[in-house]
Simulated scan of single mutants.
Amino acid sequence: MTVPVALSIAGSDSGGGAGIQADLKTFEAHGVYGTSVVTLITVQNTCGVQGAWPLPPEQVSAQLEAVLADFPVAAVKTGALGNAAIIQAVAGALGPRALPLVVDPVMLAKSGDPLLAPDALDALLHDLLPLATLVTPNAPEWTALQAAGAPPDLPLLLKGGHVPGEMVVDDLRAGEHRFTLTAPRQPTRHTHGTGCTLSAAITAQLARGQPLPDAVRLAHAYLQAALRHAPGLGAGHGPLGHARAAQGHAHLSASAGHGLT
């Protein structure tokens, strides 16, 4: 049996809770082989980002070509891309391949530290987002994308974690697929990497062959479990429980024919 392969194109989180590290943990939890392309190096823990260094775009392109030339990548996600040159390098490599693509338009870390250069929004809008199967902004990111001229028909999962209230409401607006997912807001500070984890889980399900609506529903359920199973690490916004979230939750995907592990 061939193992599905997914690719994360994102930044490295030295604290392990977000970015490439969270994506690979999430892919593994879904029974998907994870490959990666690092776009920027961060010095980071649960308390914040102490530094971030984007890689040269030619290094990003070289990583992409190496992975795509050797692995049967079935779905791709992008996270923190850093600047316009990296966005253009990624779009240039992915455009001809027409792979399912989940774009998490990471602009700020959980701590509020910037991870996208202000002048990179134009490249994000015009070079990368037209390739996306789904874009997964939180409320502040969607406000910034709208202000920059995002098209109204962009396939979106609009995340509600930043919107106050007892319930978290996520809205899927992707072509004919339109529905709302709700969950009680969990009383925890351990929320580092929630956006990365959700987009990676959607990507993993797409790599497994799930249609987009089922991939979103299953990923949403996985994220809630990962929040409940957070290991309690760090003095700030702690990481999620990526591995434990998958244990005993095969029923989450029973209706679609696949388990989480």
Rank of each mutant, 00 (worst) to 15 (best):
L223W: 02
G16L: 02
F179M: 12
A174D: 10
A123M: 04
Q247G: 00
A150M: 15
H242T: 08
G16N: 08
A120Q: 09
P137Q: 04
G17I: 03
I86C: 10
D13Q: 08
L134Y: 01
P239E: 06
I202A: 00
A69I: 00
K159M: 12
P96D: 08
A66P: 03
L227G: 10
D170K: 11
G82D: 10
T46L: 03
I202C: 08
A93G: 00
I20C: 01
P130N: 01
E28L: 10
A98C: 04
S199L: 03
R228P: 00
R189D: 11
C47R: 15
L64H: 05
C47H: 07
H30T: 03
S61K: 12
P130M: 06
G193T: 05
A6H: 01
T180M: 03
L7V: 00
T26I: 01
G17H: 07
I9C: 00
A250K: 00
P96E: 05
P155F: 11
W142F: 15
E176L: 04
A219M: 09
A62R: 12
F71V: 07
G79S: 10
T194L: 06
V168N: 13
V73F: 05
L55K: 06
P152F: 01
A183F: 00
G209F: 07
G149Y: 12
L131C: 01
A29L: 08
L129A: 02
L252T: 13
A69P: 03
G257S: 09
S36Q: 12
Q247A: 13
P118L: 04
T261G: 12
R244N: 04
P164N: 13
G161N: 06
S12C: 07
P155S: 02
A147T: 14
G16M: 02
N138Q: 04
G234W: 03
E141N: 07
V168T: 15
Y222D: 12
A219C: 02
A89S: 14
G16H: 06
F179D: 13
A150C: 15
L233H: 09
P4C: 05
Q210S: 14
L128I: 04
A52I: 14
P54T: 14
K159C: 12
V73I: 07
Q247L: 15
T143H: 13
V38I: 15
P151Q: 08
N45H: 02
G48T: 07
I86N: 14
I20V: 15
E65H: 11
A200Y: 03
G48Y: 05
D127E: 14
L172D: 09
Q224F: 00
G241I: 11
R244Q: 15
A85L: 11
P231Q: 08
K77P: 11
E141Y: 07
L121S: 02
H192Y: 01
T136F: 04
E166R: 13
G209E: 10
L154E: 03
P187R: 12
L252Y: 15
P114H: 04
M107I: 03
L212M: 01
L157A: 06
P96C: 01
A250D: 15
F71S: 12
L101I: 04
P211F: 02
P54K: 08
P211N: 11
H162Y: 09
T39A: 11
Q186F: 13
A109P: 14
F179G: 13
I202H: 05
